[in-house]
């Protein structure tokens, strides 16, 4: 029965994608992208990928839309239409589609238990997680311990994005517009959103922390928590104005968060090496290997959360600060 609902959502997904590409008003395109991410999250949830659904919602719908909008504020809203034949592009893309659909016929059917994917590596994980880590959420176990090296790489991708945006936007804009930078607008003089905001922001941040430390038991973990906390602070910045948010969480703290998070993760790995295990082998962290694994997972999830939160916030501030300059 669930498939029919999935069918409906997937079709809606395709329609949204086509709508995004066809619309010429970029603002509409960004809003549709946000809806596209939400639909993806719903799909993921139907396909039993709870963690990924949460991440897609928090990171995909939340932060991506914010970054897109802040970039749109600095560039134009409208896209110039491109006349002329679109046959070439359609042709190449069509060939690719045919190729993929042709390839799909030998693939295992959706949900087919005999598919090779479920035979080889996955059962081992499901069986060994209670034995080695004794934590319910197998995804977090794989994410942080079995394939911890991937996640380390992942944290450094976020770190790279953060220093990249700071580096690229570190250059003062060429032409200072003559007009004095207009007063820091946010919805400053609108009472109702501010009141509701002040009421909500603490709960959002609290929920972020809950997701952070609840990662072993249910869907959650560093990435999602970082994104949620960042969204909370961004909401505060939108309501109270960017200067206010910077006073609350200054730039040096943000940089410290990013660097601290990345280094914390790396430090855990190095400590494991010093204690005689392989890099990122948490079982040497404590006398009892299972407790060592749990401790390791907790600490690196904290590192990931710090890094992601710091990175997303400094990216937002880099864009927002740009707005007040031009």
């Amino acid at each position: 029965m669930i498939y029919v609902f999935a069918l409906f959502l997937l079709t809606l997904l395709v329609i949204t994608a086509v709508a995004i590409v066809r619309t010429e008003n970029l603002f509409v395109a960004v809003m549709l992208t946000s809806i596209f991410s939400l639909l993806m999250a719903a799909n993921f949830f139907i396909l039993d990928a709870a963690d990924v659904a949460l991440t897609e919602a928090a990171v995909g719908a939340g932060v991506t839309t914010v970054i897109f909008l802040s970039a749109l504020a600095l560039t134009g809203d409208w896209e110039k239409p491109r006349p002329g034949g679109r046959t070439v592009a359609l042709g190449t893309v069509g060939v690719l589609a045919m190729l993929l659909i042709y390839a799909s016929f030998d693939k295992p059917r959706l949900g087919d238990p005999e598919a090779p994917v479920h035979q080889h590596v996955a059962p081992w994980y499901l069986e060994k997680t209670p034995e080695y880590m004794d934590i319910p959420n197998v995804v977090t176990a794989i994410l942080s311990s079995f394939r911890g090296y991937d996640t380390l790489g992942e944290v450094f991708v976020v770190f790279a994005a953060c220093i990249g945006v700071l580096f690229i936007l570190g250059v003062k804009p060429a032409r200072q517009t003559a007009a004095a930078p207009q007063p820091v607008s946010g919805l400053r003089h609108h009472l109702i959103p501010q009141v509701v905001g002040r009421l909500l922001v603490p709960f959002i941040v609290l929920f972020g922390l809950y997701v952070q430390f609840h990662g072993e038991y249910g869907p959650g973990g560093g990435f999602q928590a970082g994104a949620i906390i960042a969204t909370g602070v961004i909401l505060y910045a939108l309501l109270e104005g960017e200067a206010e948010a910077l006073r609350a969480v200054p730039r040096s703290v943000l940089l410290a968060l990013v660097v601290g998070g990345a280094l914390l993760y790396g430090a855990v790995g190095v400590v494991c090496m010093l204690k005689g295990g392989a890099f990122l082998d948490y079982s040497v962290l404590a006398a009892d290997p299972v407790f060592g694994q749990q401790l390791g997972i907790l600490v690196i999830e904290a590192g990931v959360g710090m890094a992601v939160c710091g990175a997303l916030l400094s990216i937002f501030h880099a864009f927002a600060a740009r707005e007040s300059m031009t």
Binding site: L187, V196, L200, F203
Partner: peptide, 16 residues
């Protein structure tokens, strides 16, 4: 509770 709080505020902000 969350939805009841944010829904109308969002609509208000949109209209404003």
């Amino acid at each position: 509770l969350f939805l009841l709080l944010t829904g109308p505020t969002a609509t208000y902000a949109l209209a404003n």
